[in-house]
Nucleic acid binder design. Structure first.
Lengths: 110, 110
DNA sequence: TGGACCTATCGTAATATTGCAATGAAACAA
DNA sequence: TTGTTTCATTGCAATATTACGATAGGTCCA
């Protein structure tokens, strides 16, 4: 059917999956890397950096904004994007709590 | 079109996106949580725990296996799944390198 | 052998995602 | 005002994902 049966899962499971979904495209990874590296914000610059058409980049930016990972603010005729630091750190710790370190060779099975 | 233009991205970007895609469904998060918690492996147990049909769970397991996050081995008439520890730790550090901690309020823009 | 179990795979339907051309909206400069 | 620049939105086509019934292929036990 293609529709997730969301009533089966806990809020945490859904939140983690949403975060992962926001990261689940190389273009969005590339956008975040740009924003992390340049710290200062970008906009149409991203279009030429990434190599996708402007509407496509705009759509990816929308998804990242919806996930709370970035923010955008109008700055004259341009729009300034940057990492949403507070949310970023929250998501980071969410992921870290899930992605616990495992001892190299426990393998109590398999 | 629905097909990612993968030639535009670096191997690292594609790898991170693939990892995120593997985690981008609450059922797969739930499966991993089960495997992390019970340490020992599961199989048909997961079907009743998750609440999805058996073919659906089997499909999610296949994706997690393809992503290298879990392994499955035949154990009599059952199949024993568990976290692929080595790969897990590698993916973890991959994600950590990307998801760097950010100072609470730098905001050199926006 | 036959039946009971467990899991993978196939086939299919419903839905979601990706990508872009065309267009719209807002800011700015001449 | 008119034109330019910048970005969002709309609409659509192509592809991917999600879910499950039906079925196939194993193991195990009697």
């Amino acid at each position: 059917m293609g529709a997730t049966k969301s009533e089966l899962f806990t809020p945490l499971q859904s939140e983690l999956a949403s975060l992962a979904k926001a990261l689940a495209h190389p273009a969005r990874i590339a956008i975040l890397q740009e924003l992390l590296q340049k710290n200062s914000c970008q906009c149409g610059e991203l279009v030429s950096t990434i190599g996708l058409a402007q509407p496509t980049v705009s759509q990816h930016l929308k998804e990242l904004k919806h996930a709370g990972l970035i923010r955008g603010s109008i700055e004259g005729s341009r729009i300034c994007y940057c990492i949403d630091t507070t949310n970023w750190n929250r998501q980071k710790s969410l992921l870290e709590d899930f992605f616990q370190e495992l001892p190299p060779l426990p393998q109590s099975c398999c």
